[in-house]
Design a binder for these strands. Sequence first.
RNA 1: GCCCCCAUCGUCUAGUGGCCUAGGACGCCGGGUUCUCAACCCGGUAACAGGGGUUCGACUCCCCUUGGGGGUACCA
Length: 546
Amino acid sequence: MSDKVVTRFAPSPTGYLHVGGARTALFNWLWARRTGGTFILRIEDTDQKRNTPTAAKQVMDDLNWLGIGWDEGPEAGGPNGPYLQSERRDIYDKHIRQLLEEKKAYYCFDSTEDLDALREEAQAQTGGFAYRRPDKFPTAEDAEKARAEGRPVTVRFAVPQDEPLVVQDVVRGAITFAPREISDFIIQKSDGFPTYNFACVVDDRLMKVTHVIRGQEHLMNTPGQQALWRALFPDTELPTYAHMSVTVSDTGGKLSKRERPKVLREAITQMPDIHLDKLAQVAGLTRQQLDSFIAGTTAPDMPSIDAMAQYLGVSLPEINIVDFFKSGYLPETMVNFLALLGWNPGDDREIMPLPELIDAFDLARLTKSNSLFDRKKLIAFNTEHIKMTPPEKLREHLRDYLKVIDSPILKGDDELLARLIKICEGARTLADIERKSRFLFTDTVEYDAKAVNKVLLKGDGLAILAIVRDKLAAMDQFSEEKIETMLRTLAEEKQLGLGKVAQPLRVAICGNTISPPIFDSVQMLGKEETLRRIGNALEKFRADGK
RNA sequence: GCCCCCAUCGUCUAGUGGCCUAGGACGCCGGGUUCUCAACCCGGUAACAGGGGUUCGACUCCCCUUGGGGGUACCA
């Protein structure tokens, strides 16, 4: 088969794109790029209960941030659209009718309670459940009657029972399933929508998908889907399947969206003196909603969670792709890191720019076993990527980051951002740069008690600070070189390490012991503001200390 | 319960029967550099889950046990 490769990412739009989904999207995308093929984005919105109206947009935003663009799909269009399954109802209906006519599918009128009872019974007997196919299929008239009586009408696919179902998988080889293990599954729900297992097969065929790359959680669906494919499209070739390993969290269990609310809830429970009314207000929740969240019965939406975490100073594990964005990771880092979860180039390369990644990617090198998402290693990757990203590009990333967290540094122009990047060399995340430099853009200094105590109150930090103030005041040229010379000379004169001189000054101007190099920090703050802050500090802590 | 998948340092992994006294990366530990945080430099620690086979020879092949993961929906 020499046809062009076609892959697809088919998320159900239930919320933000999380790392697992991003990895699936990435592998499909990489394979399409590697082979010069097509990458399709298809939105699987067949569950009316679960879909939120903005979720598809959120997923697309996240993919775009990662740089994973689709050749066909929503917004991009394409010859095999529409790409929202909710807009393809007539297509599914047609194929359902075909199966019904060919007696390859049949109507069912069971209620939820009926099915529960059947399952319970099967559980007790054999341990496995397979829907018992009726000897005679209900007719269309029967279905009409049932509908009129208000009973639920679904359609099930009659899974062929004559031979074992063998799935050929790129990563796992041949996997054999006994046909009786595969139940006659529902292909059309009582609300008329197709189920995932059905829509997926129809669309993969109609969209000419050649490679289905997805998580291991879909492995058990595959024999049924393949049987359906053969029933629907005899004499056509099945796509190639690759079931990737799953990624689990390093905080314990499964990498799940529920982790963030969980961590926050635990943090709240452990804080003895929290003003809960204030917290509710910060989160934009009623007190009742907050109590319900703390009790573990509900989880508020993401902005509320974020707001509370920020207010309480709790850092939550990043799960969604936007979380990583907001934590100051570069998209290049995420792509590189995610690619290496369940795949490797076969040599010792790890930090790889995108073109290299694409060039090296190969489905044949997918890993079989599950992997843990190691945030420590992610940070190391980000540090490397920050180092190797060209300054202009990094500046764009920084500006995007500042926007998303709404930082006061946003006021700075390009030249200034470029300088911050330069003097914050070695930063691990964009958040490092922001945190360090923020003091340059705020009017008031928030003093960190520990830093003040250690650097200003203990020893003669204040005395040195006073001298530094006078020396700075006397300078007519306020360049970082002059400032450096002055501070070094002073340290030498006093027979002190530079730290003894620099640290009091640092705490005075930024409130803690962390900032960009002191000479740059002072110069950028400016003479007037630096002197003002030193003055404030002297006044405040001389009084306090005595 | 039943079905399916997986199993090398703490973590991600290389390894496709002899090249393995098991390699790399992150972490961790020790040392160096340093105005803070980082970054950087040098060194070190650490793994083939257990038991049976097959073979002249098993990390590599087979079986069992154990452990982990997934599925078992009118969710995808």
